[in-house]
Design a protein around this nucleic acid. Structure first.
Lengths: 224, 224
DNA sequence: TCGCTCTTTATTGTATACAATCTACATGAG
DNA sequence: CTCATGTAGATTGTATACAATAAAGAGCGA
């Protein structure tokens, strides 16, 4: 038959476990400091401990959890310094991404940027079911915006590296979207970045992106 | 007994496997593109497949090998674009490290920098058993130099991230040390960086470090 | 009560067995 | 000769058993 086994490279359960575990930690379902008991996770995910251990090794390598020999895995905790360090790095890396993107961005990607920027702006007037859903939506749109730029930078290593810097639990990432004032500032930065990218102005794109992220950092730090 | 089990946190064999595997790949013992058969590694390392798989998942997460479901692990190959991307990232990250270090560096660390810089200079006149041993020594000293700066930046995330960018097989990293001319240029950069750091001049430290790395990239690209 | 040792229990680390999947090669039809 | 098909062997993915270690608590003497 023609389509008998076209699939090839069927996904593997340990990969699924990795993705899920990662998502759940970021979403806050496993709080920082919480122990991750292999047997418990195995039961919950409906697999044996083997793929769980595989996944734990990976998230540990990524930095989201720490593994202590013979004592198990614990979700990483974030203190003030950790967050500062993470945002510093993010500013450098995404600044670089923006600068690279300025000369490599396609028309389609620019259009996508405009679209998400508009979506974020319009949400200022929109009605939401509840605050939580609203913030979730904003964080998601914002993520699309930033991802688009990173992808346009066309540096695979960068794209692989960044997630491990961004892997900060949601609870820390949402502060930028709580007040209308901060939203307006974010929108301003997004628009400025788009303009710089349209003009192919790498240096401007870099500094705007960096300032955008530093602002995010400062807002977060004030809320602690 | 007093000292019966003070040890605590005894290292675990899968960690040892990870370290060794990583070293061997970087050293070129497993060439890019080579398959890493679990059973073979297990026999060679004297352990079962379980810790091998654990270690493979980690080096894969780090990017040194790629794992294809049901087809196994293959040492990552590097084409020209990969190398350019890696060096671009390295320039950004180590530039950042140098800038941070400029305001945080202790006297002891500065002394260590001077020492390794001197060691690299003196090697110009020194006699070595063979070229290979010589280059190995230079690469090692150079690594100490760069590590010292990264550590002085006091950003743990940065220190964790960088190795995955630096993880380029040795065969690619040694070109900077083949000609006396390149060694002199490297020495010049090292000295300039030290001066900037001593003066606490973050911007200068950053740009010198970036140029240092870009030079390394260009030399490497020419040799391909 | 405090501090010590010993035991018990929970959990991790490793080895091994088996199932699932891929690869290579042989076979045969056109 | 070329291409498809089937089969054998190699290799990976998962489950499970067991060993090793750490954490918590019981018992006991001072």
């Amino acid at each position: 038959m023609s389509d008998s086994k076209v699939a090839l490279d069927e996904p593997v359960s340990s990969d699924a476990v990795y993705e899920r575990l990662r998502r759940e930690i970021i979403a806050g379902r496993h709080a920082p400091g919480a122990r991750l008991i292999e047997e418990r996770l195995a039961q919950e995910y409906g697999v044996s401990r083997t793929p769980i251990r595989q996944a734990l090794a990976r998230v540990a390598q990524e930095g989201l959890v720490r593994i202590f020999p013979h004592r198990g895995a614990v979700v990483r905790t974030f203190d003030r310094d950790d967050l500062v360090a993470a945002y510093d790095l993010r500013a450098v890396l995404e600044g670089f991404a923006a600068a690279q993107a300025a000369t490599r961005m396609g028309a389609l990607q620019l259009a996508l940027l405009e679209e998400t920027a508009r979506a974020l702006e319009e949400s200022l007037q929109a009605q939401f079911l509840n605050r939580e859903a609203e913030v979730l939506y904003l964080v998601e749109q914002n993520q699309i915006f930033h991802n688009t730029i990173v992808n346009a930078a066309a540096n695979e290593r960068l794209a692989v590296l960044l997630p491990s810097v961004l892997d900060v639990p949601m609870q820390f990432r949402s502060f930028n979207w709580y007040t209308p004032e901060e939203r307006r500032i974010s929108n301003f930065f997004h628009r400025s970045i788009i303009t710089a990218l349209q003009q192919g102005d790498a240096e401007r794109a870099r500094s705007m992106m960096q300032e955008h992220i530093y602002r995010g950092r400062d807002v977060l730090l004030e809320s602690l």
